[in-house]
Design a protein around this nucleic acid. Structure first.
Lengths: 113, 113
DNA sequence: TCCGTATATTCGAATCTACGAATGCTATCA
DNA sequence: TGATAGCATTCGTAGATTCGAATATACGGA
């Protein structure tokens, strides 16, 4: 690779992005936002978490450019900055589901012996 | 969703997987392993990092089932447990590259004024 | 069996992260 | 101009993470 520094910098940014995805609440929020823009109130309701917590997580994702916010009257509407983030999430999720299935199948075999 | 608990547990596991990806060295290792199984020595050489550091990161990924290790004579050969992990990485990376490009284009416009 | 190469583990310090609690800000409406 | 609803921010703390340094383990060859 010609520019090693640039490559390393990209890995650093990518790690930062992954770090932002590394929280169950944030993953749930992203899924919710996948269905379209949503006010904070609705996200709080759907997740059942405290308002401050949701707001903190939204702030993290906003700072990292994963979601964008827009004021609509008295509400703040959040949406995905780039829907491709969901593609990545769905791949990792499918990997997990497949792994769980394999483990389950293995457990069946062991149980049957 | 019928089983909210199961959904939450999946988000937890998914967050754990993302957490494992949230390190530049580990991302670099995954890319290297994408080209095929590699001995630790080679990974140390390619990254230019200390051996202990590489071994620690490999241990983390091994424990989380992202890579698998096999002894070959005196060496340990590591490989990807599921190549789909690279698909997810490439999506996030492409998102970053596109974002950087947009920022660059915007900088050009500003500079030209 | 002793040695060297290859790899793994342990430990401690520095740094980061998520959460609850409390508080602040802003727009609408009476 | 309060008052209220909706949301953001700050702060303190418990727990997690990363790294280097040191040390341990495993295997093949002499």
């Amino acid at each position: 690779m010609i520019d090693l520094e640039r490559k390393r910098e990209l890995y650093r940014l990518q790690a930062e992005l992954c770090q932002t995805l590394a929280d169950p609440t944030r993953l749930e929020l992203l899924e919710l936002l996948g269905e379209g823009p949503r006010p904070v109130k609705e996200l709080v309701r759907a997740t059942g978490q405290r308002q401050a917590k949701i707001s903190q997580h939204l702030a993290v994702m906003r700072q990292r450019g994963i979601v964008v916010a827009e004021r609509v009257g008295t509400e703040m509407h959040y949406s995905l900055a780039d829907p491709r983030i969901l593609d990545a999430c769905h791949i990792t999720r499918q990997m997990l589901i497949d792994r769980l299935r394999r483990q389950h199948a293995l457990a069946e075999v062991v149980r049957g012996e």
